[in-house]
Amino acid sequence: MTELQGYLLLSALLFTIGLAGAITRRNAILALIGIELMLNAANLNFIAFWRFGPNPEALTGLMFVIFSIAIAAAEAAVGLALIIAIYRHYKSVNLDEMNNLKG
């Protein structure tokens, strides 16, 4: 197994853990934590391919990760604001209780 494959397998495991957390837990905040883990796994992939791939001097993978971190920050802010708004409405963060489209 090469070093790149080690990093890719680690990133795949991290993605799997995030996916399992996002779809098996009832709490909305835990689902968001799972999504953050999946985003981080994708970032690790980009960095690993940049380091071990051809033409690392082009900095493409690095730039992608920098922009992806900025988008993840925006996503976390909006997601948590949504959770707070939903908590104010339902008095709960349990995803199973949010089964009503009409406000």
């Binding site: 905040i29 968001l32 900025a70 993840a72 920050a73 976390a76 948590l80 959770i83 707070i84 908590y87």
Partner: peptide, 19 residues
């Protein structure tokens, strides 16, 4: 960004939703 901002945001969300 992640340790300094996202983790703190999550702690704030836990605080504000009393969970």
């Amino acid at each position: 960004v992640y340790i300094g901002a996202v983790a703190i945001l999550i702690v704030f969300a836990i605080l504000l939703t009393r969970s």
